[in-house]
Amino acid sequence: SPEEIKAKALDLLNKKLHRANKFGQDQADIDSLQRQINRVEKFGVDLNSKLAEELGLV
Rank of each mutant, 00 (worst) to 15 (best):
N38I: 13
I30G: 02
D31K: 09
K22A: 12
E41V: 11
K22R: 12
K15T: 07
Q27L: 08
F43D: 06
D31S: 07
F23K: 06
K8L: 13
G44D: 02
E41R: 15
P2T: 11
E4W: 15
D46L: 06
V40L: 04
D11E: 14
K22S: 09
F43M: 07
A9H: 02
A7K: 14
E53G: 07
I5N: 07
L13N: 00
K16I: 06
Q36V: 08
K8S: 05
I30W: 03
G24I: 04
L55Y: 02
L55C: 02
N38R: 14
Q27P: 11
D31Y: 05
L12D: 02
D11H: 10
R19F: 14
G44C: 02
L12C: 08
A9R: 00
Q34H: 11
L13S: 00
L17M: 06
G56F: 06
L10Q: 01
D46V: 06
A7S: 09
K15I: 08
K8F: 07
F43C: 12
V40F: 02
L47V: 08
L33I: 14
L55G: 01
K16R: 14
N38K: 14
Q34E: 09
R35K: 10
L10D: 00
F43T: 03
N48Q: 08
N21P: 02
L17D: 00
K50F: 09
A28S: 11
L12K: 04
L10T: 01
A9W: 04
Q27I: 07
Q34A: 06
L33D: 01
R39K: 11
L55I: 06
K15M: 13
D31Q: 10
K16D: 02
R39H: 15
S32L: 14
A7Q: 13
L13E: 00
R35C: 12
I37A: 02
E54P: 01
Q36I: 12
D31V: 09
D11L: 12
Q34T: 10
R35Y: 08
Q27G: 06
P2G: 09
D26C: 13
Q25Y: 15
N38C: 14
D29K: 14
Q25G: 14
E53F: 14
V40H: 01
R39W: 15
E53Q: 13
K42S: 07
L57A: 04
A9D: 00
E54Q: 07
S49Q: 03
A9F: 05
Q27C: 07
K50A: 13
E53C: 12
L10M: 05
K42C: 10
V58H: 11
K50Y: 10
I30S: 03
G24Y: 05
D31F: 04
N48T: 11
K6V: 07
S1N: 11
K22H: 10
K6T: 06
D46Y: 05
Q25M: 15
L12Y: 15
R39I: 13
K22N: 07
N38D: 14
S49T: 06
L57Q: 03
Q34D: 02
Q36E: 12
A52F: 08
G56T: 04
R39S: 13
L10A: 01
Q34V: 14
E4P: 04
G44A: 02
A28H: 10
R35F: 08
L12T: 04
E54W: 14
A20F: 11
L13I: 02
I30H: 03
G44Q: 01
P2R: 11
H18Y: 14
L33R: 00
E3T: 07
G56M: 07
L57D: 03
L55P: 01
I5L: 13
L17I: 05
V58M: 11
L12E: 04
G24L: 05
I30Y: 04
I30T: 04
N38H: 10
A52T: 02
F23M: 13
N21Y: 15
L13D: 00
K15H: 09
A20V: 05
V45Y: 02
K15V: 06
L57S: 03
S49L: 02
G44W: 01
L55K: 00
K22L: 14
L51W: 06
H18N: 12
L57V: 07
D46I: 06
R39C: 15
L17E: 00
V45D: 01
L51M: 05
Q36M: 14
L51A: 02
L47G: 05
Q36T: 08
N14Q: 13
L55V: 04
K15G: 07
L17N: 00
V58L: 11
D11R: 10
G24S: 09
N14S: 10
I30A: 04
L55S: 02
G56A: 05
Q27K: 12
Q27D: 05
L10G: 00
I37T: 01
K50Q: 12
L47M: 13
Q36Y: 07
A52Q: 02
L10V: 03
K6S: 04
N48D: 09
K42L: 13
Q36A: 10
V58R: 11
N48K: 09
E3Q: 08
Q25V: 13
E4C: 14
A20E: 02
K50D: 11
N48S: 11
P2E: 11
R35E: 14
S49P: 02
N14K: 15
I30R: 05
A20P: 02
N38A: 15
D29W: 15
V45R: 00
D29I: 15
I30Q: 03
A20G: 03
G44S: 02
I37S: 01
R19V: 08
I37E: 00
G24K: 08
A52S: 04
L17Y: 03
A7M: 12
E3D: 13
Q27M: 08
N21E: 11
Q25H: 14
N21R: 15
L13F: 00
K50W: 12
L51F: 07
V58W: 09
Q36N: 04
R19P: 01
Q27T: 07
K6A: 04
G24A: 09
Q25L: 15
K22I: 12
S32F: 13
K6M: 06
D29P: 03
A28T: 10
Q25D: 08
I5Q: 06
L55D: 01
L13M: 03
F23I: 10
N21C: 15
K15E: 10
A28Q: 11
S49Y: 03
L57I: 11
G24W: 05
K15D: 06
A52G: 04
Q25K: 13
V45S: 01
L55Q: 01
S32E: 15
D46M: 06
L51K: 01
L47P: 13
K8G: 03
I5E: 03
Q36P: 00
V58P: 07
L10C: 02
G56I: 03
F43W: 12
E3M: 08
Q25S: 14
E53R: 13
V58I: 12
E4T: 11
L17G: 00
D11P: 00
V58Y: 11
I5W: 15
A28F: 08
E41L: 13
S1T: 13
N14H: 15
D11Y: 12
K8M: 13
K50N: 07
K50M: 10
L12S: 03
V40W: 04
E4L: 09
S32V: 09
L13P: 00
S49W: 05
E3K: 07
R39F: 15
D11I: 10
E53P: 01
R39M: 15
V40G: 00
S49N: 03
R19T: 08
G44K: 00
Q36K: 07
D29Y: 15
R19Y: 15
E41H: 11
N48H: 11
F43V: 05
L13G: 00
F43G: 04
K42N: 08
Q25T: 11
L51E: 03
R35Q: 11
L33W: 03
Q36D: 06
L13W: 00
D31N: 08
R39N: 13
S49H: 03
I30E: 02
V40R: 00
A7V: 10
S49M: 03
R19H: 12
N38F: 07
I5F: 11
V45T: 02
R19N: 11
L55R: 00
A7D: 05
D29T: 15
L13H: 00
N38G: 07
L51P: 01
L47E: 06
R39E: 15
G24M: 08
K8A: 11
K42D: 04
L13C: 01
F23C: 12
G56S: 05
S49I: 03
R19A: 12
K16W: 10
E53D: 06
I5G: 03
L51R: 01
R19M: 13
I30P: 01
